[in-house]
Amino acid sequence: MNKLIEDFNKSNDKYEIVPVVQGEYGETLQALQASLAAGKPPALAINRYPEFMKLANSDVLLPLDEYMNEPEFNKDDMLLLDQGLYDEKTLGVPAFVASQMMYYRKDIFEKHNINYDELENFEELAEAAKLIKEKEGISGWSVMWYTEHMIDYARSAGGDIVSEDGKTVTIDSEEWVYAWDSIRKWIHEDKIMDTVHGGNGWEWWYKTIDNVMNDRSAGYTGSSGDGGDLDFTKVATGMQKGFKDSEPRPVAVSVMFNLFKDAPKEQQEGAWEFVKFYTAAEQTAYWAVETGYIPVRDSAVETDIYQEKLKENPYLAVPLEQAKTKGIPPYVDPTGGKIYTEIELAKDKVLIQNIPAKEALEEAQKKAQKELDKVLKK
């Protein structure tokens, strides 16, 4: 990010981007809310989808449709542009695309004749994890303490967040309970999997990766954005698995640039110039090969930098393939994130406190339904 900011600043003599780094997306939202309350928003921010929805619901974001209709922007080349829509206006532009991937230790899987790609579902992965735990004495798989992953698991068991008509929260359905309680049992009862939680910022995330790279776990569910930090001589990238006979349904989500209504006009214009620079094919390809995230333009795949990296690391293509062939959009939470909050609280009860999924999800469903009902009544 700093490299691209530096390149942009050198490329023009009118605008300068001054980065302010936060620990993680929740901290970014807190900083934004404080600056908005003080009447001094930044010109530009990057937000994950749930945080974007909260900001969109607060009516503080600048509509970008007029900017995006500039011919040189070529919006038809962009991936997941529809995820920035809110109330028929475009309030966000993809900065990068993430999908949650499965990373596993090639040496450990090969040693025990486990072919990840031939595993039919998550239950077969659990059987492989059990074998690895018995033979190696290490965790067979690590489950991230991450709400998005738990939502992926539930949807990959056939569940959804709400009913088709959008009126009923369904996070207490049989499919959700099955997926989540399977994870809970594998962690707390069978002890063939584990989860790391707590710490500052993304500390728990990086500890999970460290456990895999340092022979304490055989694999983990992570982000496509981990690809820039992993040693692919040791690990391989796999696509997500479904549960039972269900197809995997991982979310492919845009992490978005947002501009703010109350920022000075000149700063808004400078921010948009940076967005255009950053999302151009060469820059988004550079971002992708350095981080592992999915580029935001179809044309990025044809750039020299992307093609050269692909020769060096064929696993770079797996997240893009998953996003295009199996990826589904995130749920658009009409409550401004309150349904997501209840799912997050339930996730902690299941993963950390070992509370049965049925109990945690039924409580979450009741609270989430009340929030949805308020919105529907309006």
Rank of each mutant, 00 (worst) to 15 (best):
M1L: 12
D7M: 06
Q22F: 14
E24K: 10
G26R: 05
E27A: 13
L29V: 03
Q33N: 14
L64E: 10
G84I: 09
Y86K: 07
V93Q: 00
P94M: 04
S99R: 00
Q100L: 12
D117S: 10
L125V: 06
K135A: 11
I138R: 04
D152I: 08
D160G: 09
S163T: 04
S173F: 14
S182E: 11
D190E: 15
K191L: 01
H197C: 03
H197R: 05
G198F: 03
G198C: 05
N200C: 01
W202Q: 13
E203H: 07
E203D: 13
W205M: 08
G219V: 03
G222A: 14
G228V: 03
V235E: 02
P248G: 01
V251G: 00
N258V: 15
W272F: 15
K276H: 07
E282R: 01
T284I: 04
V289Y: 00
Y293G: 09
D298Y: 15
V301K: 15
E302K: 15
E302Y: 14
T303K: 05
D304F: 08
E308Y: 07
V318I: 14
Q322D: 05
Y331A: 01
T341I: 03
E344T: 15
P356K: 09
A357Q: 09
E363Q: 12
Q369N: 09
E371H: 08
